[in-house]
Design a protein around this nucleic acid. Structure first.
Lengths: 328, 328
DNA sequence: TCCTGTTTTGTAATCGATTACATTTCCAAT
DNA sequence: ATTGGAAATGTAATCGATTACAAAACAGGA
């Protein structure tokens, strides 16, 4: 409740001395002791608002995600938090709901100095706006990105990862492999589809656009819908590659509902290795992204950028996790 | 980049007039137009830091959760966000990891005026500290709470909800009903156990402490462990009531793994109605808490408290959701 | 004792806004 | 033209810290 003035007066010193005691400036042990006693007695806590105004920084970083309920983000966020907190920063988790208005609120926070920078993980972000904002403010893209924006990013090789997943499906004997893809306006969706296509063609399986089932969104229900469409269609498949675990889990549920056994009747592979991919029955084969590391890396890049240090985009490694949904 | 001084000078008016244009004070249309032109031209954005220092508020609210990866919290957080944003507040999602050090960082933010108040949903929170903090700062407890703390809370009737869930298990013909409970240091765990006990006793089934399987944590894996212990024990059960969906999903997976069919061999009921409870096979019977409403309610209570308005603790309604895991 | 150089402490400007109060401007009524 | 009162505008204090610079205190050497 007390402020620095009251502490100074009570201790019989100047505010500068109190500030020095707080921040480790040169002070006589005697004065230091006296001031510290008063600080304790008055329960003085320096206001961040004053300090931040003076230093014109907020030590707050924004993390943009479309929705908090997609577990894809949780490990990345964990990584970010553990990287920034020791450096005296905090993160503000910003759910945009893919709503430009929401997005603008958060962009405004940066413009108005309430936040020092942004890590964007939102594939639906308004790239035009983001690019403009990046001219004056530190911004990093994590996971979903645009190269042309010129904004540094952290990602994995989506094309190669999808290639490996689909190659694995071929290796277990599947030849009729469908794909469940989300909206190809997203870069990751295009890249993963390229990997799917390359894996088929390299194995002598012709790629057919008809085998790609597009969804209207990234959620469980969309996966169910896609699977229903696929299984009630005229073509039979022995394996499905879904572009995300959430879609794959939806597909899995729908396959069960329609009386199919996984992997015996149809194998299913996902992407992301979210926590729940291990909880389904059968457990899901998937691609592990180094979520936590992607978080810490992008966080460090952002802090570097804030402090004017040079920053390079990073491509991180991935791993194919083979589990029950693709082996008997 | 520009500040209010530069705008004032460029427009040939005083800073007060610029401030009035920004905040809707009395200004001549002519001056207003002139100032607005300069604001646009210089791309002036008022700094929140200056404003907040002057008003000694940050318009930031802290939401304390143990971990972001527990989907239990997502809808509540959604509710909070949608309630606070229209009122000009933002939330800082604070993952404590049940780590007192982390917790203290966030408590400090409130003490140091970087945040205006706290909604605590962390069952592992240090109640002593929270109570002390609540003497000087606005705090609301959501979902998990302590009555003695005197801090206002939002909750459901856990005892009654558990009673209904277990009664349902009795109604479908189960007599040997186990419980998977987390740590009884948590109030909700004690309350739900009381409901379980009452449901048994009212139906003439003796309560046996042996039938309660305690876990060391709230996650999927803990549910698996508990189920394994239960199914490899000497007693046979026809139904299980788990104190949370995450534990129930773990139990479900383990039951499958050990070759049991759900619900034919053993019925399983959860608690919370997290999004994933619908994605499992079979879908999980569970208790729906009005998550979203709990979020908006606690948010409004916190804002009321911040503004010095009186605040009352609230008990919200719940609903039993019967799904595949308890009916054939 | 006096001087010099170092260390400690204090004074006051600064960050960027808001706002109470003072002053000026404007217009209508006399 | 003068005056009064309302409306517009300006001046300067304020919020709570940090910090450059000035001033004072102190210690050691001549």
């Amino acid at each position: 409740m007390a402020n620095i003035q009251e502490v100074a007066k009570e201790a019989g010193v100047s505010v500068a001395t109190v500030s020095r005691v707080m921040n480790g400036g040169a002070v006589t042990p005697k004065t230091k002791g006296k001031v510290e006693e008063v600080i304790r007695r008055l329960k003085y806590e320096p206001s961040m608002l004053g300090r931040n105004l003076r230093n014109s920084e907020s030590r707050l970083l924004l993390v943009l995600i479309p929705t908090i309920s997609n577990p894809y983000y949780s490990d990345i966020i964990n990584g970010i938090e553990n990287a920034v907190i020791p450096q005296g920063y905090n993160i503000l988790l910003c759910e945009t709901d893919s709503n430009p208005e929401r997005e603008n609120i958060y962009f405004d926070m940066v413009r108005k100095k309430m936040a020092d920078g942004i890590i964007s993980m939102d594939p639906t972000v308004n790239m035009e706006e983001l690019k403009i904002l990046a001219e004056d403010h530190p911004i990093i893209q994590c996971s979903e990105y645009s190269v042309e924006s010129g904004i540094p990013f952290v990602t994995i090789d989506n094309e190669e990862a999808a290639y490996r997943a689909v190659s694995h499906l071929v290796n277990i004997g599947s030849t009729d492999i469908a794909m469940i893809n989300s909206d190809v306006t997203f870069l990751y969706a295009r890249q993963r589809q390229l990997g799917y296509q390359r894996a088929l063609e390299e194995n002598g399986i012709p790629f057919d656009e008809e085998d790609v089932y597009y969804t209207n969104g990234p959620s469980f229900e969309h996966g169910q819908q896609a699977m229903r469409k696929m299984l009630t269609g005229h073509k039979e498949y022995s394996a499905v590659f879904a572009v995300s675990d959430l879609l794959a889990i939806g597909a899995l549920k729908e396959a069960h509902q329609l009386g199919l056994r996984v992997p015996e009747d149809i194998a299913i592979a996902g992407f992301d290795k979210i926590a729940f991919s291990n909880m389904t029955n059968p457990a899901l084969t998937t691609i592990a992204q180094p979520m936590y590391d992607m978080g810490t890396t992008s966080a460090q890049m952002l802090i570097d950028k804030i402090n004017g240090r040079p920053v390079e985009s990073t491509m991180m490694s991935h791993e194919l996790i083979i589990r029950e949904s693709t082996i008997g």
